[in-house]
Simulated scan of single mutants.
Amino acid sequence: MRVWSVPARAVLSVAALALAAGTLAFLAALFLHVAPANSVSRAYAAEVDAVVYPEFEQNWKLFAPDPLQQNITLDARVQTIAEDGRISTRDWFGLTARDFAAVRHNPAPSHVDQNLLRRAFDFYRSTHSEQDGAPAGPQGRLAEQYLKRIALQRTGPSSDGERILQIQFRVSTATVAPPPWSEEQVDTAAHTRELPWWPVDEADLRGLR
Rank of each mutant, 00 (worst) to 15 (best):
P65W: 01
A136S: 15
V171L: 10
V78M: 12
R118V: 10
R2S: 12
A102Y: 10
L19H: 10
P157M: 07
D99Y: 07
S41P: 04
V103K: 03
T188Y: 03
L74Y: 05
Y44C: 02
R104M: 11
F93S: 13
V11L: 14
P36L: 05
I150W: 07
E83A: 15
Y53K: 06
Q168E: 13
V51G: 03
R98S: 14
L95I: 03
L19K: 08
L32N: 02
A190H: 00
V40I: 15
H105A: 14
R77Q: 13
R193H: 12
G137C: 07
L147R: 04
A120E: 10
T73C: 02
S88P: 03
E144F: 08
P179N: 04
A64E: 09
P199S: 08
D132E: 08
G85L: 02
Q79S: 13
R104S: 13
T96D: 00
R119A: 11
L17Q: 10
R42P: 04
Y124V: 03
R104G: 07
F169R: 00
Q139T: 07
Q131E: 14
D160A: 11
F31K: 03
E130N: 15
V51N: 02
W4T: 12
Q185M: 02
W60M: 06
T89D: 04
A25W: 13
V200Y: 05
R77K: 15
Q166T: 14
